[in-house]
Design a binder for these strands. Structure first.
Lengths: 232, 232
DNA sequence: TCACTCCTTTCACGTCGTGGAACTCGCGCC
DNA sequence: GGCGCGAGTTCCACGACGTGAAAGGAGTGA
């Protein structure tokens, strides 16, 4: 592995949401020797991508946060969707999510039921299922390998999940009825993106079933957002 | 410069808010030769920190956004401050900002007057002045070199600005009366951070003057937030 | 005091990054 | 069409720089 990729894999070591890591933990996660890890970590600290804490452990730095906020793609996706409008039109809480390594990451919301920054599990949420349906094979395989039972209604049988993903790929709306949180129903569809893959998932959340009219509005909004994104 | 620092400087080339850059522009901004730039850019694209667009130009990638959102420090700062409470207590729109390269970046707000993600100019906003007062010498020098006149009330004389920064360093509250936007008054104080530097700036925004009582509440909130941050 | 772990420094080795030169492609201009 | 120019890309010999085992601190618990 080249040096640059190694240094970036150090950042990836923080990818699953751990707030801080010690040097040995980073070395273990990346598989790099300790001295090499130390050198890379120091360069990242000098840049601001990592910060050293008082106890010697490291955490992701502000520089990374600032730069990440500049990334135009999730911004454009969120803006293209017009969440407050969808929220007002359907009367349901709306959110957009993009594929992250460990699940579907909520990058924007309106209505308050699914806060910004939430990491939704692949197999138990509507947005997660939509993104998983088009994810890389290895991601899908690991997601289906050991699906956690989060509520009594969580579907965990790999065969059933694979069938759901197949239907979603054929255009069916993804539904999660209390599979993630009790008393919460989600529906989601893909926002069309480049290369035939979704740019993200657009979802509605409610305390009860989502009526067909709201689903239709969701579909229209997702299609419109995809069209907006397509013309740069 | 070592390889890792070079690759990170490529990311920094996008730091001032440009949505996309061509290869030659990145090479020009970083001062790297074209072949070297190409190699680094390709590694960053492979990782996901950059994305190549249809026209061949590059933009910051989703991976960077996702990782940046995981950075605990701005999250903790925003959470520690309790913006909605400050907003409710003072009746004024409140926001928190951290130092970015080109100004003060709003990382959280309540009240709607200063939207999240806004880049506030150093010299014409209260939060900008607070952060500039403790910024590195070279940042301060470049900020004071050519302060833009944004309204008829913008203070642009380097001598006056230096004097204001001196007072702010001595604990005085930073005030901007219509220096950034007509009809907007800001006041800001530092949220104490490690090494005697501010972790960020906490500010109130209003359409009229901010009363002394609100400023006192602002001071108390900033001090309390600094204390929360100090005990990890 | 010893044993252990984690972090850090050192240094000889050789891999891997380097960037000038050269090639290709697309575009605009005469 | 021919020519010139700039941007992006490939190639490759040179040597700087990254590498990681080994050894040296520093802190902690027994």
């Amino acid at each position: 592995m080249p040096v640059v990729a190694r240094s970036l894999s150090v950042l990836d070591a923080f990818g699953d949401g751990v707030p801080s890591l010690r040097l040995s933990a980073i070395a273990a996660r990346t598989g790099l020797p300790a001295p090499t890890t130390l050198r890379l970590v120091r360069e990242l600290v000098a840049w601001g991508g990592l910060e050293r804490q008082a106890d010697g452990s490291y955490r992701l730095g502000t520089r990374l946060w600032v730069l990440g906020n500049r990334a135009p793609c999730p911004q454009r996706l969120r803006d293209a969707v017009g969440l407050p409008i969808l929220h007002a039109a359907t009367g349901h809480s709306a959110h957009v999510a993009v594929a992250d390594t460990a699940g579907a990451l909520v990058i924007g919301e309106s209505g308050g039921l699914v806060p910004d920054g939430t990491l939704l599990p692949w197999h138990a949420t509507a947005a997660g299922l939509v993104l998983l349906a088009w994810a890389d094979d290895d991601v899908r395989a690991s997601a289906l390998a050991a699906p956690a039972r989060l509520t009594p209604y969580t579907v965990t049988a790999p065969g059933l999940l694979t069938e759901r993903l197949r239907r979603i790929r054929h255009g069916e709306v993804a539904v999660s009825r209390e599979e993630w949180r009790p008393g919460r129903t989600h529906v989601a569809v893909a926002v069309p993106g480049p290369h035939g893959r979704p740019a993200g998932a657009l979802a509605l959340a409610g305390r009860t079933a989502i009526p067909p009219g709201a689903v239709a509005a969701l579909r229209r909004t997702a299609a419109a957002a995809g069209a907006v994104l397509a013309r740069h």
